[in-house]
């Protein structure tokens, strides 16, 4: 049995990206400015991380108009959601210590 560490997703693993994906996983759609405030990072930092997640196919960005303003909305793709769920499962296993084996006990 492989250690759950090997099932951690490299793209999601970075702390800021993990928080972004965790926030997006709780919603169908979140506006950029709200996600920025939720994760507590700057506009540029969020843009940078979103680009990485978009390239990985985990996040979809859409722009729409409300009155005179253009708003940016973000959502997790089905691939992103699956990757996040798998990542969280691996984290839970590591946290519970289920796969930690003591030598000589088998």
């Amino acid at each position: 049995m492989s250690h759950p560490r090997s099932r951690l997703d490299d793209v999601i693993h970075a702390p800021v990206r993990f928080s972004i994906v965790a926030a997006l996983a709780s919603a169908t759609e979140i506006e950029f400015r709200v996600l920025r405030d939720t994760v507590e990072i700057t506009d540029s930092a969020l843009s940078k991380q979103i680009t990485v997640l978009e390239k990985a196919g985990y996040v979809r960005v859409s722009k729409f108009s409300v009155g005179r303003r253009t708003r940016t909305s973000l959502l997790l793709t089905p691939e992103g959601r699956t990757a996040f769920e798998q990542h969280v499962r691996a984290l839970r296993e590591i946290a519970s210590g289920e796969t930690v084996r003591i030598p000589g006990t088998e």
Binding site: P15, S19, A25, S26, I30, I94, A95
Partner: peptide, 19 residues
């Protein structure tokens, strides 16, 4: 490590609550 995993899970929970 186990404590890092717990910390990450706690962060995910906090994000979920906020959203």
């Amino acid at each position: 490590r186990q404590d890092e995993a717990l910390d990450a899970l706690e962060r995910a929970r906090a994000m979920d609550t906020k959203v």
